[in-house]
Design a protein around this nucleic acid. Structure first.
Length: 643
RNA sequence: GGGGGCGUAGCUCAGUUUGGUUAGAGCACUCGACUGUCACUCGAGAGGUCGCGGGUUCGAGCCCCGUCGCUCCCGCCA
């Protein structure tokens, strides 16, 4: 694992930071270096970079970018009144623009009386243009909390160009810094987005996009757009449908991802493609899930898994570097089977141990009916040892059991070791040497689940995560990147035996597995890979099937055996493959999620300008909304009362 | 579709446990005072459908039923 160079301090590793701060020279508005952006402690954000003149016919400088070196300059700055202080005769206005705050000082020594009077009446959040001279503050008047704190603008005039109604929610927060309710923040998004924290997040997001383009373009990837109005996909998430006016009763769908298009680009011979692509999935929302989201979508020809992984590691490295974080490559790797065995999930958080182990042998002789039933049915008893948890109360362990049950387990086997003795409902069924066999030290708690892996893995995954949280084992400063490899090709429904694609139907199966177990597709592994960071999936991809016959066979295994049906649903992909397809593969990263992580945000909503609520509403613009009946008629649509 | 949390002044909250006169605080807002503030300070004032609807009660912000909104989670998200 990469050494952590600069945990959450906001400091950057010197060399990297310098390299990424260097920007093309251009004529500058200010005689100052790029504004520091007034990074708050804890923020990994580097700076925003101004590469073109931002002076306009109305404004000469960004007030927030002024520095001591600008002393003596006559400036005209424009911005929002963040706060003002009227001392009676003296007026101070903190003027805010996207580069930060600067104090504007109105004083009878340099300001006309009527200008001071005007300044004293301007409401917060109004937009003003101020003319004045940059001056050093007296030494005892410096403000170390402000990037511009060494200077102030001594105003000679002020003009209100955009008077503001009293803000519905505060932009300038008070000392406690408590945010308004999220509902209000979304409803009054224009005000919310004025806050420095969000401004910085969006500036970072912008830079991450530019890094992505620079990096991929530099590696020969072509940015090509794909349709937004496209064909419904019969598998995967629910589609957003768009009615066709021209063709009554027919619908477009918004893309869940440009998957098929990007494979077709390979068939076209574009060789390397990328797109910062908007994707749409009509599923219920979460803190980290929106209806529309942005993917860094990548596909390349004549490549193998290692090519994609190496490219992706380079991209991750460049993205994290832009946020001032050094990432060491290559990332460690783990097979799906190992991850499920040791962590119970396919995106393990490696920042803490609490690994799952098979303890079936210890329980094999036990008289417990539940355990015996599970073992006889071919299941196992697996569990984790939790240090210090023997002291947890009955209630606390019950809560863990509830978590395990909600994940599908029948219950939680609990054994605590104290003074060399095992305690717990099942202790009486176990041999005297069971504690040693479990490797359970005094003070430790064993939490186990009996049953098939398909039940115990997800349950123990959840229990493991909750225990880590409770014990404070999650080190927020650590970054544990990981490649998850060798996913199974298919998932089998335990009841019907029907196969579904674990990744997607276009992923290529491992050729060795196909040859070794031609009759057992459920044993085939896929040439798929996921990039995981701290228990979060950043992205995933696969080598694709480029042989139309193999692709047709995959559809067949997935229950689409009818050739006409295959053609109807996927004909345009099969046609591309039949026209001569190079070996190809790709990957897609969740861009919003990456921006969220690097901005230190806890919700995707903080890195999306106008996000939807968890009830799928856009509160600011008021979407969705009813439309006039006539509009529906043109689209050959009639609404019905829902039951 | 299911479960948990929240909803009182423009904003953040107290008041709900145990129903009882006219529902409070801080910030913001309005007016006034104040010449180095930076959360300026000080004085005065205005500001409420207690999310909404129904019910119980002599009486409901508080109890009951329903409903809406936001949020976290499960299902769902190839």
């Amino acid at each position: 694992m990469a050494p952590e160079l600069h945990p959450r301090s906001g400091r950057q590793p010197r060399g990297l930071a310098r390299r990424f701060q260097r920007r093309p020279r251009g004529p500058r508005v200010c005689s100052t270096p790029p504004p520091s952006g007034a990074c708050a402690p804890g923020s990994p954000v580097v700076t925003s970079a101004i590469t073109t003149p931002l002076a306009t016919t109305l404004r000469t400088h960004f007030g927030g970018a002024l520095r001591r070196t600008d002393t003596g300059t006559t400036v005209t700055i424009g911005g929002w009144v963040h706060r003002s202080r009227d001392l009676g005769g003296l007026v101070f206005i903190d003027l805010r623009d996207r580069e930060g705050l600067v104090q504007v000082h109105f004083n009878p020594h340099w300001t006309a009386a009527e200008v001071i009077a005007a300044a004293s009446t301007i409401g917060v959040e109004s937009v003003v243009l101020v003319e004045g001279v940059v001056a050093e503050r007296p030494s005892e008047m410096l403000n170390p909390n402000l990037a511009t704190g060494a200077i102030e603008v001594r105003a000679t005039s002020i003009r209100v160009v955009g008077p503001a109604a009293t803000p519905a929610i505060p932009v300038a927060l008070d000392k406690e810094g408590k945010l308004p309710a999220e509902e209000l923040r979304l409803r009054h998004r224009v005000l919310d987005l004025r806050r420095e924290e969000l401004q910085r997040a969006f500036m970072l997001r912008h830079r991450l996009m530019q890094v992505t383009r620079r990096f991929l373009s530099g590696q020969g990837y072509l940015e090509i757009e794909t349709p937004i109005l496209t064909k419904p996909t019969p598998e995967g998430a629910r589609d957003f449908l768009v009615p066709s006016r021209v063709h009554a009763g027919e619908f477009y769908a918004l893309p869940q991802s440009p998957q098929i298009y990007k494979q077709l680009f390979m068939c076209c011979g574009f060789d390397r493609y990328f797109q910062i692509a908007r994707c749409f999935r009509d599923e219920d929302l979460r803190a980290d899930r929106q209806l529309e989201f942005t993917q860094i979508d990548i596909e390349a020809s004549f490549i193998g898994r290692e090519d994609i992984i190496a490219m992706a590691e380079g991209l991750i490295q460049a993205l994290w570097a832009e946020a001032g974080v050094a990432v060491e490559t290559p990332f460690p790797r783990m097979s799906y089977a190992e991850a499920m065995e040791r962590y119970g999930c396919d995106k393990p958080d490696l920042r803490y141990a609490l690994e799952i182990r098979d303890e079936s042998r210890v329980f094999a002789g036990s008289e417990s009916g539940i355990i015996q039933a599970a073992l006889t049915a071919g299941g196992r008893v697996r569990g984790i040892r939790v240090p210090g948890a023997a002291a947890w109360s009955r209630k606390q362990v019950d809560e863990l059991e509830a978590i395990a049950k909600s994940a599908g387990a029948g219950g939680l086997v609990r054994l605590k070791a104290a003074n060399g003795v095992l305690e717990g409902p099942l202790a009486k069924f176990l041999a005297a040497e069971a504690q040693a066999a479990l490797g359970l030290a005094d003070g430790e708690l064993f939490l186990g689940v009996a049953g098939p892996d398909r039940v115990s893995s997800p349950a123990l995954d959840r229990v493991r995560q909750e225990c880590a949280r409770r014990l404070g084992l999650v080190d927020e400063r650590q970054r544990r990147f990981l490649w998850l490899l060798d996913f199974p090709m298919f998932e089998q429904d335990p009841d019907s035996g029907a196969l579904t694609a674990v990744h997607h139907p276009f992923t290529a199966p491992n050729a060795d597995d196909m040859a070794a177990y031609p009759q057992s597709p459920e044993r085939w592994r896929a040439l798929a890979y996921d990039c995981v960071l701290n228990g979060t999936e950043l992205g995933g991809g696969s080598i694709r099937t480029s042989d139309p016959a193999v692709q047709s066979r995959m559809f067949e295994l997935l229950g689409i055996g009818d050739v006409a049906e295959q053609e109807r649903r996927f004909g345009f992909l099969l046609e591309g493959l039949r026209a001569g397809a190079p070996p190809h593969g790709g990957i897609a990263f969740g861009f919003d999620r990456i921006a969220m992580l690097l901005a230190g945000a806890s919700s995707l909503r903080d890195v999306i300008a106008f996000p939807k609520t968890t009830a799928a509403r856009a509160l600011f613009e008021g979407a969705p909304s009813v439309v006039p009946a006539g509009d529906l008629e043109v689209l050959h649509i009639r609404t019905v009362e829902s039951t």
